[in-house]
Write a protein that binds this DNA or RNA. Sequence first.
DNA 1: ACCCGCATGTAAGTCGTTACATGATTGG
DNA 2: CCAATCATGTAACGACTTACATGCGGGT
Lengths: 184, 184
Amino acid sequence: MDAKTLCLGALTLGDASGYEIRKQFEEGPFAFFHDVSFASIYPALAKLNDDGLVIGRELAQDGRPAKKVYSITETGREAFRTALDKPPASDKFRSEAIYMMFFADLLPDRRRREVYESYLALHKEYVAGMEAELDSDAPGDGKDIWRAASGHRFVHGAGLAIYRALVDYMETHRHLVLGQEEDR
Amino acid sequence: MDAKTLCLGALTLGDASGYEIRKQFEEGPFAFFHDVSFASIYPALAKLNDDGLVIGRELAQDGRPAKKVYSITETGREAFRTALDKPPASDKFRSEAIYMMFFADLLPDRRRREVYESYLALHKEYVAGMEAELDSDAPGDGKDIWRAASGHRFVHGAGLAIYRALVDYMETHRHLVLGQEEDR
DNA sequence: ACCCGCATGTAAGTCGTTACATGATTGG
DNA sequence: CCAATCATGTAACGACTTACATGCGGGT
C-alpha cells in the first residue's frame, strides 16, 4: 500500500499534519502493520494536495514551529473508498530474526542465544505494551481517531494475538534453535 | 534483507539455479517470511558471481533448457556469516486486509463481509497446508536443503503458530468488524 | 552546552516491481 | 493446439530510504 493511500486513510480519522500522521504510524494501532517515513509522507501529502484529494492550511502555534494541517476532501474520501475496493494484496510477514533462526547452525553459540533471547524479550515487551493499552481501554482524549473504534479494537487485537502466539511459540521451542537445554 | 543476501542464504543449503531459488521462496519454508521475483534474483546472482561470492556453471539438461547452477564460495559463506552478524531489522507484518478492517465502516456491508470471509478462508487454507507439511514430516528426497532441519522446523512452526493465531482470532472476533451477528 | 521533540522539506541513491522478450518441451 | 512448466534475462518505471538542511524551545 503506497504512502498516498496510507495518508488518505489517516486523514479519514481526522485532520492532521504530516508529523502527526507519522506519529500515528509509529505509536498508533497501525504500528505493527505499517510504517512510513517523513520522506514518503511529505511528498505524498503535497501530491494529494495538488490533486485536490486533501487541503492543507498553515497553522501557527506558540512555542512551536507552525504546522500544516491537512483535511481530506470529498474527492479524497471517494478515492480512498475506491482504493479499499481493490482486493487486498496478500500478507507479508518479514522477519529477519526468524530468517536468522533458519541458519542458526551458522552462528556461534553465544550469538545465537543472544539473538534469540533479545528478540524474544523485545516481543514480550511489545505484547506487554499492547496489553496495557487494551486495559486502559478508552483513550480519554476525544479525538476523532477513535471514530472507527471497533475497527481499531479489531486491528489492535489481531496484532496482539499474533505477537502473543509468536512469544508463546518461542518460549516453548527454544530447543529447535538453541539445542539440548530444556524449554522455559 | 536484500536479494543478494537471500540468494546467498539459499545457496548455503546447496547448489541451485535462479529458477530453483525462486521456487524455494515460493513453496519452501521461507514462503511466509520472504519473497523475491526473478527480476531481483537474476541480477543478484550475476552480481554475486562478479564479486566471487558464488560461481555459476552452465548445465545442459535433456528435454529442458540449460540452467545455470550456482555454488557458494568460501568467500560467499564468509559474507553470509557477516550479514547474519548484524542485528536483525525489526519485524514487519504487512497486511492490507487487516488495514482494511480498520476502515470497515467505509465499506458497504456486502463487500466488508466478502473481504473478511475470503481472507479468513485463504488463511485457513494456508494453515491446513502447513499442517499437512508438518505431518508428512521428512521430505523424502535427500536434498541438502534439509541440512538445517531443526532451523527449518522452527521457522515452519513459527509461521504456523502465527497464522493459526490469526485464524483463531478472526473466527472469534467477527463481531468487531461485521457487526451484531454472532461469532462462529 | 547539548540533546531531544517539534516541524517541514529536498536530493541522491538503492532497490524492487511490472512488463517485455525468447524459447524448448510435456500433457491435456 | 494451447497451456503450463522450465529457464534466463533486460528495460522502464516507481517507490521508499538515508542523509542532509534548517530552526525554535525546553529540559539536564
